[in-house]
Each structure stands twice: as C-alpha cells, then as structure tokens.
C-alpha cells in the first residue's frame, strides 16, 4: 500500500476535475503504471464543488476504498478554499497545488496551514493565454508532473499529444495550445 501514490483533485463542476484525473490516469498508464481514476459522485451542477481521485502504482492496485489521505491535493479554483477543507487528510509531508496568482506563502497564510508543502500556479492565466479559455486542468497536470516527480514531462507531453491529436484531429491549434499550457505550468509552478 505504501508504494501507491494517492491524489485528490478539487474543482467546480465544468472545470475538468474529472477529466484531469482521467488524463493523468491514462498518461501514467501509457508510461507503464497501474492506475485508478474516479470521481466523487454527488449532485453534479455547473459551478458546484466536485472532487476526483487517482491512485498510481508500479504494482496492480486491488484496493477500492475511497481516498481519505492523499499525498497530493490539487485545487483548480482558488475560491473553493473558502467553502471546502481542501487540506483534509493531507499528511504533514503532503503537497498542495493551487491554481492562483498568489504566492505559496500567501496561500499558507490564508489556510492557516501548518505542515505540508504549498505550491501555486496561475493555471487560469496560462490556460487563457495558450488555449484561449479558462480550462485550468491541463496546466495543473504540468504543475503536478513537476511537483510529484514520478513521471517525466517529455513522456507526458508525448502521450498527451497522441491523445489530443486523435480527439481534435480537425483543430490542431487546440493540441498545440494544451501542450504549451502543460509545458508552461511545468516551468512556472512556484514552490515555498
């Protein structure tokens, strides 16, 4: 159980928290990992808080419990931290990655957080500049790859390119924009 990486995504309905977990799962799988990706099911409404989860391991995963102590938490929407306890269950050596223009120290202060490590990335700005819309999930993936260090960014970009090219065959600008977003977030994520 120790070798399994557990991740929780927080977002608002429509922001792509579920898709982010699926994308990460597929990317990790194509790089030889065993994976799980699953959303939390409740009322599904545009804008309402939602969560999704990943398990990633080098060995087959038989565990099918919910994830209560993730070692990494990603927050796609800064405003969620007013209403959701995004650090619930995050251990002292856990990592929190938030989509915000603020610095990690500001977020730590806002959350009154002791322990854990805080990372920030302005994924919405990157998404607006690269994809032309505020869809923060792909840049968050780039930040996650940097922070977690369990996958190589080159491998993830290659896998993502193959998948997006298949999905957006007639819109090459979407493929380029998304790849750019991942690359930029990977480079720009801020640590404490």
């Amino acid at each position: 159980m120790d070798s399994t990486l557990e991740i929780r995504w927080h977002g608002r309905g429509g922001q792509g928290a579920k898709t982010a977990a699926l994308l990460l799962g597929e990317a990790a799988m194509s790089l030889g990992k065993y994976i799980q990706a699953f959303p939390e099911y409740g009322p599904e409404r545009m804008g309402a808080p939602v969560a999704s989860f990943n398990r990633i391991s080098d060995k087959p995963i038989t565990l099918h419990s919910g994830i209560t102590n993730p070692s990494i938490v990603l927050v796609l929407d800064h405003t969620l931290i007013d209403s959701i306890d995004v650090t619930a269950g995050l251990p002292a050596d856990g990592k929190l990655i938030i989509n915000t223009a603020l610095a990690p120290a500001d977020i730590r202060k806002e959350l009154k957080l002791k322990g854990s490590r805080v990372f920030t990335i302005d994924a919405s700005k990157i998404s607006n500049e690269t994809i032309g819309r505020d869809i923060p999930n792909t840049p968050m993936l780039g930040a996650l790859v940097k922070v977690s260090g369990f996958l190589k960014i080159e491998d993830v970009l290659k896998d993502l390119e193959t998948k997006l090219k298949k999905k957006f065959a007639s819109k090459p600008e979407i493929v380029a924009g998304n790849l750019d977003a991942v690359k930029r977030a990977h480079a720009e994520v801020m640590a404490e």
């Binding site: 977990a21 699926l22 799962g25 597929e26 799988m29 065993y34 994976i35 799980q36 990706a37 699953f38 959303p39 099911y41 995963i61 099918h64």
Partner: peptide, 12 residues
C-alpha cells in the same frame, strides 16, 4: 459490478 466503485473507476 459494484456501482460507482467499479462502474465509474478507470483502470488498466
């Protein structure tokens, strides 16, 4: 299959 636990869980 177990609802949501398996039906909605992505696996290899």
């Amino acid at each position: 299959t177990d609802g949501f636990i398996i039906s909605h869980c992505l696996e290899k």
